[in-house]
């Protein structure tokens, strides 16, 4: 039943698109009919080209995501423990948080060229904030009353950190990772649109130059589907780590 409800709106759009194309209201050179898009998708899939682009993009996202987590997470823990560091870090982060990662691409290209390094840099920039801020926030917002429970049972600082602060921060950390993954996927595709010679974003920009709106539509749908699948897989993987939180969705989309 729920699946049917989810599919209602896409189906209506598809139907309108189909009817519009057949009747001739929609200009085929601007929006090609669904049948042609489907045909293009099948061609791209069977030639392996689409999968190759997807694989390239996914690989970049995961590499960049792990690189970010490796330094954003320890940094957040450090700042969470040594609260005095916050005064140094906070204003800088408030400033940097307003800069869209894409705006830094020209700089990254000057520094790193259009190779993998500049893409990695964009992903790191996009992923850093949600991961760092949510981890830090999770650590800082640990319930004082629970920490008192640790005191009462004679826990040392180390035990309080590992047994109380970390588990209580876990849901927030996972939200940060999930957001970060979504941000990095979007930022990467953006970066590929500007400077790349492979990847799903590159496929789209190349199609623009070839005047192939059908490929562009396939590309856009692919981006949405991949983003959705990444998020879904991540959610399924992590929800068994935090079984005590029963809510399905924990944050608003940005």
């Amino acid at each position: 039943m729920k699946v049917l409800k989810c599919l209602t709106i896409p189906f209506v759009i598809l139907a309108l698109w189909f009817i519009g194309s057949t009747v001739g209201i929609i200009n085929q050179y601007i929006i090609p009919p669904p049948s042609r898009v489907l045909h293009t998708a099948i061609t791209l899939l069977s030639s392996g080209l689409l999968l190759e682009h997807i694989a390239t993009s996914l690989f970049r996202v995961f590499a960049g995501f792990f690189a970010t987590v490796l330094f954003a997470f320890p940094l957040a823990v450090l700042v969470g423990i040594k609260r005095k560091l916050q005064d140094f870090i906070e204003p800088v982060l408030d400033f940097l948080g307003h800069i869209p990662p894409i705006a830094c691409i020209p700089m990254f290209i000057l520094w790193f060229g259009i190779g993998e390094a500049s893409k990695l840099a964009v992903i790191i920039l996009a992923t850093f904030f949600p991961v760092f801020l949510n981890t830090l926030n999770g650590i800082l917002s640990c319930d004082k009353q629970l920490l008192e429970v640790g005191d009462v049972f004679g826990f040392k600082d180390r035990d309080k950190f590992l047994r109380i602060i970390m588990p209580s921060a876990l849901p927030s950390i996972i939200v940060g990772l999930r957001l970060g993954l979504g941000y990095s996927w979007r930022a990467l595709v953006g970066a590929e649109l500007i400077a790349a010679s492979s990847g799903i974003g590159y496929m789209i920009i190349e199609a623009e130059q070839l005047s192939r709106p059908d490929i562009i539509i396939v590309g856009i749908i692919t981006i949405g589907l991949c983003g959705y699948l990444i998020d879904y897989c991540f959610f399924r993987l992590t929800s068994c780590i935090i079984p005590w939180t029963r809510k399905r969705s924990v944050y608003g989309r940005s």
């Binding site: 009353q145 429970v149 049972f153 035990d159 047994r163 109380i164 588990p167 209580s168 005590w244």
Partner: peptide, 26 residues
């Protein structure tokens, strides 16, 4: 010495059984 607080103050990530074992972690 230990105290039972006005609120239960259980660890939300632990089950009833694990919460009871919580002070015996060491």
């Amino acid at each position: 010495v230990s105290i039972v607080f006005q609120e239960p103050r259980l660890m939300p990530w632990l089950t009833v059984e694990q919460n009871m074992a919580f002070p015996l972690i060491k």
